[in-house]
Design a protein around this nucleic acid. Sequence first.
DNA 1: GCGGATTCGATAATTTTTTATCGATAAAAT
DNA 2: ATTTTATCGATAAAAAATTATCGAATCCGC
Lengths: 218, 218
Amino acid sequence: MGNEKELLNVSKATIGRLPAYHRYLQEKLAAGEKTVSSTAIAEDLHLNAVQVRKDLSAIAREAGKPKLGFAVADLIADIDRFLGYDNLNDAVLVGVGGLGKALAGYVGFKNYGLNIVAAFDADPARVGTTVGGIKVFPADELARLVRRLNVLIGIVAVPREAAQGVADELIKGGVRAIWNFAPVHLNVPENIAVKNEDMAASLAILSKRLAEILNSEK
Amino acid sequence: MGNEKELLNVSKATIGRLPAYHRYLQEKLAAGEKTVSSTAIAEDLHLNAVQVRKDLSAIAREAGKPKLGFAVADLIADIDRFLGYDNLNDAVLVGVGGLGKALAGYVGFKNYGLNIVAAFDADPARVGTTVGGIKVFPADELARLVRRLNVLIGIVAVPREAAQGVADELIKGGVRAIWNFAPVHLNVPENIAVKNEDMAASLAILSKRLAEILNSEK
DNA sequence: GCGGATTCGATAATTTTTTATCGATAAAAT
DNA sequence: ATTTTATCGATAAAAAATTATCGAATCCGC
């Protein structure tokens, strides 16, 4: 098959760092640099050079060269391929309030392989409008339309109270992965992937680090 | 001092899970339940019971009781105290475009101990307006005002290209922690905390999990 | 071409995080 | 009162992730 390596042995931690490498490499590419060393990446991104080498070798097709490092363009292509940035996955967005609208307007998703094909909202005033070029449909058509569009990814950007219901409808429509921006734990079957965008958790980590820094100073 | 335990020996992973426990516990409290067991929490949140016990014992003042579990109200108070949810930290928001507006309108932050006291934007059309009850000031007053307000936390919600400049200004004004929503790596001194809200990374992890699930099915 | 500097990949050591095991304890049931 | 049962905390084991070490490779300046 040729690419047995692909899905195997790439840790979640590594996957989480790949987008940062990707951005970094694109900067280097734009700056006209042909190669880059793990040492340099590690220094700039505040990581360990061995870790960078390991991460990259897990997904790179070509090995790095002694004294030169890795070929920037090749690495970008490798990450593109590995993360699926080069072929779009369809998704639906549920909830076009403040956050939902922001997400709909974020054109960057296309670069990450995500294509939002429809939006939904329970508020009749929002139904029929267009946000970020995406049409808004009534919430009660969710499951039916998702099924018809054959969409596998759902983005949940509704208020806390509504999130579980939305998740249920998405799953009823055949969605297999849910990106959850609502601050609740969603209850879903085993075979559904959920990724919580937990702002509270991020904030907790940030403020603990802040506390540490302030503490270490006096 | 009495609380030597506080900042010690609580791993970042644990801190990241605390907000989820907090939400869960509040649901239980609202449902009128007085105690809850690590087993139940683990089951509902899809975690390991030993891990839950360890996490909780790292921050709880009272031990859990055999056969009953932990006191819900006490635990909530403990997490509140530990994460600083009970005393507000001031922050400024930079950038009130789509995402910034959404963040400004998110009232939930107050519950997480975050109080946004001012917003900034480079667009003159936005300056002077109010978003989510927060006044928008011109970007060139950033450093000065941050210093005067004595704010330690900055939220960056500007386009990629502007983010580094904003970070520099925030730091010049005395900010010590930056919550970065722009898809770039920020270059900051050692003694500044940065937490990237990396949507691309989340999405990468979600879609890899989706791929695994789909793969394991056929 | 030759020698030095730099980086790589592989392997090993360390650290951190997660999970398993088990005796002790206290509530609930008999 | 005694037994049963669910749960805890402590300790140990396992797994995962990070970091260190080192010989080999190859580019670059001379």
